[in-house]
Write a protein that binds this DNA or RNA. Structure first.
Lengths: 238, 238
DNA sequence: GCAATAGTGTCTTTCAGACAGTATGAC
DNA sequence: GTCATACTGTCTGAAAGACACTATTGC
């Protein structure tokens, strides 16, 4: 039952994190097993309370650093972190009125054992099989994935999924995995290298176990893509 | 000075509204003169406190209805209302820790005197001249305008600026005013009528004071545009 | 030379961008 | 017929989509 009164809501604030990566050719999300009630022993998105006097984005950065043990940066390249949206249904948390400002983080394929500073076990899970999460985290995850998918279209976000340097093939795999569709390597190559400031060649090559070495690139100065990358759109009428 | 402690933040929640419309061939925003401290007698975005037990979106709807005297709907067409982003810098409000969930609302050119239910004077102001607002509302307004601009590209949001029925010329004016650039009427017409589900003809015509009558349309079922409308992009490198 | 992966060139089609003239209604 | 506004048709250029072969390395 929901009671609405004239009284002002007084709430506690949390940040929740949708941390996405591409691992083993799948889009995966970082989940934790909750150590406390409510939803004890259930899977949830990492997150925590905003502290008194702490900025919301700082709180998200703090949680991200704790969960990924990376201080929010990898080899000097800061992880992508942006506010996603705020979830504040009155009954979303049984402990009381707790409003969560969800954030979206994009990480390269990190060293496998991602250990949080606390004893909670953190693990990567493919987004399709990440279901029945605690609270309204199914919804938050879905919104985060959708945001990532659409930002690949008109921004250079895809490079945030890659390590400091990467091959065009790796970048293409990011698109293929996040969008769930295959892309023509020739057309992709033409588009990426023909878009000013998307990627810049390092001049070096990565030698694979077998096959021809691939040229390495690093992210360019551009942040937006125009014209955008196009994916086969699924239009859902109102 | 900002003090960060281990203690959890306890905050009050507000909703602020960026209500945009196209009036007199300009993009305008609804502003109110604050009746109370802080920032008394200064211009601000309309908004108010979320009530105990009240959902955030409901609070935004309530404030929107109060400010526009339209109960969130015009002739049965609900006004467009979406969450924009959350602003929670610790010092953003001198009264204490108050976190604001800003929303973006799009309205057609409403009947001129927009009177709030309370005695505060509300008025339309062109977005370029809406400066020096209370709190961090300059930033919120800028973010709202930017959101509206970019959503015109890949969604059918532009119809939310129009009344129940509209001419292609009126729709084009929305794009021109919001983007601040002129568009070729022939190319615009071809694009809009050629995009499936964007607009549907009503079969009626609007007879102007002078000149040839224009065909009327109403919004179609499509919500996203693909391929998107393109505006001349200003790329800002990272 | 064989296996494995990287990388490229051309044709076709679609669509954006530029541009000027015709149509319809009121007076 | 004049004024004012609505509306349309064609050409051009850019870029997406489809498609198959060559290049480089380790073995």
């Amino acid at each position: 039952m929901t009671l609405t009164t004239r009284a002002r809501a007084v709430v506690q604030l949390t940040v929740d994190l949708v941390i996405l990566t591409v691992r083993e050719a799948r889009l995966q999300v970082l989940l934790v097993v909750r150590g406390n009630e409510p939803y004890r022993d259930q899977l949830a998105l990492p997150g925590g309370f905003v502290r008194k006097g702490e900025d919301i984005l700082d709180a998200a950065r703090r949680e991200l650093a704790e969960e990924t043990s990376l201080d929010g940066a990898l080899d000097g390249t800061p992880l992508h972190l942006e506010q996603l949206r705020t979830y504040g249904a009155p009954e979303r948390d049984p402990r009381g009125r707790i409003v969560s400002v969800a954030h979206l983080a994009i990480a390269p394929d990190l060293p496998v054992p991602v250990a949080g500073t606390d004893a909670r076990s953190a693990r990567w899970e493919p987004v399709e099989s990440a279901r029945h999460l605690a609270f309204d985290h199914d919804q938050i995850l879905a919104d985060g994935v959708e945001r990532a998918r659409s930002k690949l279209e008109y921004t250079t976000l895809a490079t945030a999924f890659c390590r400091e340097t990467f091959t065009i093939g790796e970048l293409r795999q990011v698109y293929e995995v996040v969008w769930g569709q295959t892309l023509d390597p020739r057309n992709f190559n033409r588009k990426v290298t023909g878009t000013d400031g998307f990627v810049v060649p390092t001049g070096e090559k990565r030698i694979p176990e077998t096959g021809r070495p691939a040229s390495l690139y690093r992210p360019g100065p551009a942040t937006t893509l125009s014209p955008p990358m196009l994916r086969a759109t699924v239009d859902r009428p109102g």
